[in-house]
């Protein structure tokens, strides 16, 4: 039982990170119906920015309080990845809006390749380890919960609350949902559709950057190729929860996190990714609208 709860805790941590990435997929898919294949690499980029900021901070100051360091890393990572995603949308995706359906997906795949290789070329192909930032571990009834895990869950929950508020209660969120449901009508009502889509990309990137920072803090290492697998899993999470739905993305992320940690604990670590990918296939085939998603009218 203890072992099981321990795995739940680990799954919750992992799932929070997947969930944060998944929200970016879900928002972009919701608003322009495109799988932003490069989103996983945006996440990786966020982790790299956090890494560089961390190294800058440790080089400049003798010691920095962990909270301050984390905050600075997060904020800079959010800014930088937002700039990347904003530019990418403007340069690579926007001109193809209204082109045939595969065009943006292909471009996004190209972008994904370019981004990860850009980081490889500029920062080198090796793993980039950092010394542990937070190492406190609490023991609660035989279950060890690390401070890292607590930070991850707290950050995720507060961001989720913030985003839920943004999307459901502000005019910006309303404009986003309007663009999602009928872009032309939104424009007829005075919504600047291009700007709204840009903001959606920025919001997705910011969350991915936070996920990247947390990833770096949790694992203490990042490499240029770390975007792909979490990206695909986060997409799985988005689909599992019902693409287009924000709480769905988070729920999907948690489920994937649980499944992955349980699978590793009880079956085989080797096949944990096989499990995740199989779930993706099974969900898409048998439950294409996801758990919290709306049944999609089949688009032909």
């Amino acid at each position: 039982m203890q072992y099981f709860v321990q795995q739940m805790v680990n799954g919750l941590t992992l799932g929070s990170i997947y969930g944060l990435i998944a929200i970016g997929y879900t928002m972009v898919y919701g608003i322009i119906g495109m799988i932003n294949f490069a989103h996983g690499d945006i996440f990786m980029l966020g982790a790299f920015v956090a890494l560089i900021v961390f190294l800058t901070l440790t080089a400049m100051f003798y010691s920095v309080p962990v909270v301050v360091a984390l905050l600075v890393m997060m904020v800079v990572a959010m800014l930088m990845t937002s700039l990347y995603n904003w530019t990418i949308e403007k340069v690579a995706y926007r001109p193809l809006r209204g082109s045939f359906r595969l065009a943006p997906l292909i471009t996004a795949i190209g972008m994904s390749i370019a981004l990860s290789n850009f980081v490889q070329v500029t920062q080198g192909p090796r793993n980039k380890p950092i010394p542990p930032m937070v190492s406190t571990v609490y023991n609660v009834g035989g279950i060890s919960i690390s401070l890292k895990q607590i930070i991850i869950v707290i950050v995720t929950v507060s961001l989720l609350a913030l985003f839920w508020y943004l999307v459901n209660k502000t005019s910006l969120g309303r404009a986003q949902r309007a663009c999602e449901q009928d872009r032309k009508m939104a424009a007829l009502l005075g919504v600047d559709v291009d700007r709204t889509i840009s903001i959606t990309f920025i919001m997705g990137a910011a969350l991915a950057a936070v996920a990247g920072t947390l990833f770096l803090m949790y694992y203490g290492v990042v490499a240029f190729s770390d975007g792909f697998v979490p990206g695909v899993k986060a997409f799985t999470a988005a689909v599992l929860g019902g693409i287009g739905s924000l709480p769905g993305a988070m729920l999907g992320g948690l489920l994937i996190g649980f499944i992955e940690s349980m699978w590793s604990a009880y079956f085989s670590i080797d096949y944990k990714d096989v499990a995740a990918f199989s779930i993706l296939a099974i969900v898409l085939i048998f439950l294409p609208s996801g758990i919290l998603g709306r049944p999609e009218v089949e688009k032909v």
């Binding site: 690579a92 292909i106 471009t107 795949i109 190209g110 972008m111 994904s112 390749i113 370019a114 981004l115 290789n117 850009f118 490889q120 070329v121």
Partner: peptide
């Protein structure tokens, strides 16, 4: 890197 950019 160039391949990805060329695709785009």
């Amino acid at each position: 890197l160039l391949f990805g950019m060329a695709m785009v």
